[in-house]
């Protein structure tokens, strides 16, 4: 399939590829080692899927906030996002 279909670029294809791999990985993880919902610091039950959603959504806002308030370098926002995602998976 040509990359210009739907105006694809390799960057956006890689971005969605990463999200796709994460979703598939989380699904496999859930099938291999099912986890019961747990109560985190936000005082409501979350599954690993919920925590992934919160991580991805939060990461999007971290990147947008960084871009709007600070600008370059954007990779610093990615590091903050990884730390944030790790914290979400650990404590939320």
């Amino acid at each position: 399939m040509a990359l210009d279909w739907m105006a694809w670029t390799w960057q956006t294809a890689a971005f969605f590829g990463c999200i796709g791999i994460t979703l598939v990985g989380m699904t496999v993880w859930a099938v291999v080692a099912p986890q019961a919902p747990r109560m985190g610091i936000l005082r409501f039950e979350t599954t690993p899927g919920d925590r992934l959603f919160v991580s991805l959504l939060g990461s999007a806002f971290i990147h947008l906030g960084w871009l709007g308030l600070i600008g370059d370098p954007l990779w610093a926002a990615s590091i903050v996002s990884v730390v944030y995602a790790a914290a979400v998976f650990r404590w939320v």
């Binding site: 739907m6 105006a7 694809w8 670029t9 960057q11 956006t12 969605f16």
Partner: peptide, 20 residues
């Protein structure tokens, strides 16, 4: 939605031509 993401990182002047 993925198409919108594709558009958001490119520029177009029509004729289905896109520039990063």
């Amino acid at each position: 939605l993925m198409t919108v993401v594709n558009y958001s990182v490119q520029d177009t002047f029509g004729n289905n031509q896109f520039f990063w």
